[in-house]
Design a protein around this nucleic acid. Structure first.
Lengths: 223, 223
DNA sequence: TAGGACGAAATTGTTAGACAAGAATGCACG
DNA sequence: CGTGCATTCTTGTCTAACAATTTCGTCCTA
């Protein structure tokens, strides 16, 4: 790994750019679970002042992508089975509410349909990382389509950790893309049919499957 | 208002103490809606350095108790009708999930029962602020009893804004405490009876009433 | 050799001062 | 009376430094 990272142009604030860059490296698994991130290390790597690095770390801690306690250095969290279960319980709560609300209107969000297509392309080309990103986009688009700022904010918290765990365990994952595609399609169909209960059921089933797939890749707790 | 505020002893970190102090002043309505909070003002008021004040403001922004955009000063948000509706939609989503889960176990959380009593005492003594705090505690206890760290974190986001709006509009509120008490009691009874659907229904009804009570205190949008 | 205590190094928390850049305000001029 | 410019306010970022706390390695002792 290079000793210096560079920030893409774009975000107005330097802290924003730093936050976004580190966030991507964490959710992609580039920075592995358990790794410690000190303020000075990041500051020197990115050529920014320590307070700037500190601010980025604090924001990442706020969204659950880092953990730290007072005077201790931030680490990328290691999600064990109990935490993954809690994560998916919370996720199902939010996303069920989202698809129910969408089904009540009967309109399938265009962004979600587009993401669904992107997943298939990525799967065909064996681009695992793109496939994960597209899957995240699909679920995020569903929630965003509800139009509730607060629901989206809560979902952002959750989906960040989901992204983290998918990225961290990617080496072990062997998921049949067509299975995911059909599960997604079932949800969209129920939304189009205007059937909230069916949409919620299909979504819950899909997420339970996703949870099981993720749990099966977890390293066994050694005796 | 005094030109200097003092921090209570307790929280380990200075930033934590500052965050907590400002948070309380906002949710109690002591700092009114629309008020601007500049970094230097807080820094001088509390006798801390500007970066410390900045950190506290950023954390408050992160939980929705302040709003700010780049280079602009933070302000206490003014929640209009649409935002209150969104707030309660999100709140109902989270709390329904919580009471359903609790009813599945059939155990009434002790903390919630205690908070229920505290509400009655506060109402009897006409201590409005305590009444609000106890009500918040009741709902927070319900969610906390589920034992899901992430559900509690999401709820914290929501309940903060709920607290804010209750505190800001308190002058206009005239709520019958016994009504609230009986609505709460219905939820607890359904949990004790182990009936998830009934618990969710009673809770939704209670929160819809609370939403309506809050909306009725909103100043009319002038033509 | 194993264990614990002590001390040094690393890391974070907080402060001060400074400068640049963007936003808001008011005044002057057309 | 309205518009544009300049001043002022406020935030974003940096450098430097010290205090407080944690961590780690070493050394001494049993």
């Amino acid at each position: 790994m290079s000793s210096e990272a560079h920030l893409e142009l774009g975000p107005s604030s330097l802290t924003d750019a730093l936050y976004e860059s580190i966030r991507k490296r964490i959710v992609n698994g580039e920075i592995p679970q358990g790794e410690k991130l000190t303020e000075v290390r990041l500051a020197t790597e990115y050529n920014v002042a320590r307070p700037t690095a500190k601010a980025a770390l604090e924001r990442l801690t706020g969204v659950g992508l880092l953990r730290r306690t007072a005077h201790k250095t931030a680490v990328v969290p290691v999600l064990d089975e109990a935490e993954i279960r809690d994560l998916f319980f919370s996720r199902i709560t939010i996303e069920k509410a989202a698809v129910s609300a969408l089904a009540a209107t009967g309109e399938v969000p265009a962004d979600a349909a587009r993401a669904q297509v992107a997943i298939e392309y990525a799967a065909r080309d064996r681009l695992f990382e793109n496939q994960v990103d597209a899957d995240i986009s699909f679920h995020t688009a569903l929630v965003a389509a509800v139009g509730s700022r607060r629901l989206s904010r809560m979902h952002e918290l959750i989906i960040g950790e989901v992204h983290l765990s998918m990225g961290q365990y990617k080496a072990h994952r062997k998921v049949d893309p067509s299975t995911v595609a059909s599960e997604h399609a079932a949800v969209l169909e129920a939304i189009a049919a205007g059937d909230p209960a069916a949409a919620a059921d299909h979504l819950a089933h899909h997420l339970e499957q996703a949870e099981a797939r993720l749990l099966s890749t977890l390293p066994q707790t050694r005796s």
